[in-house]
Amino acid sequence: MLRVEVKPIIFVLNNSGYTIERYIHGKTRKYNDISNWEWTGLLKVLGDPQEKISRTYTVRTKEELSTLLDDETFAKTDMVQLVEVIMEKLDAPRALQVQAELSGKSNSYGAVSNPTRAA
């Protein structure tokens, strides 16, 4: 994107791991945690070390996101932009939470009732 001058807006949802897997297999399982990378440094690493053709932002609240989306500079989309959206570990719509938890219970039941499936 940087090399061929495509100018997308990239949103990185940072919730420190795999939220849906937390609801399926256990909210505190360590394997659902991921390293907290410096996502806003990604475009520097990928070809814009002086940040001449890209911009990055970090937002932590709905208000910050709304303010950014209303910003004229951001809306110009005159360069690649990356927005890191910091979210809570367990931030997911209620319906998705319920479905994931049901899937987890179903998968667990299937593994117990079918020993070959657990292997």
Rank of each mutant, 00 (worst) to 15 (best):
A119R: 04
L2E: 10
E64W: 06
A111G: 03
S16P: 01
K89S: 11
T56A: 07
P115S: 12
I20N: 08
S16D: 15
D91R: 02
I9M: 01
G110L: 15
E63G: 01
T73I: 09
T40S: 15
E5A: 02
R117P: 00
T73S: 04
R22E: 04
E63I: 06
T73Q: 00
R22I: 12
D48P: 14
V83L: 07
I34D: 07
D78K: 08
K52R: 15
N15S: 10
N15V: 01
A75W: 05
M87L: 14
A75H: 10
N32P: 06
S66D: 14
Y18C: 05
L96I: 04
L43Y: 14
G26Y: 03
D48E: 10
L102F: 13
K52G: 06
P8G: 04
W39S: 03
V6T: 14
R55T: 08
K89H: 07
N36T: 03
K27R: 12
G47P: 08
K105W: 00
K76E: 05
M79L: 00
V85C: 07
L42V: 08
T28G: 07
D78A: 14
A118G: 09
Y109R: 09
R3G: 06
N107K: 07
N15C: 09
Y23M: 00
S103W: 12
A111P: 01
V112C: 01
N14T: 01
D70E: 08
M79A: 07
L65G: 06
W39V: 05
L90A: 06
G26Q: 06
D70N: 11
Q97G: 05
T28A: 13
N36M: 00
R22W: 15
N36G: 08
R3F: 12
P115L: 02
E88P: 05
L65H: 03
L69A: 07
P93V: 13
I86G: 06
E84H: 11
S103D: 12
A119K: 13
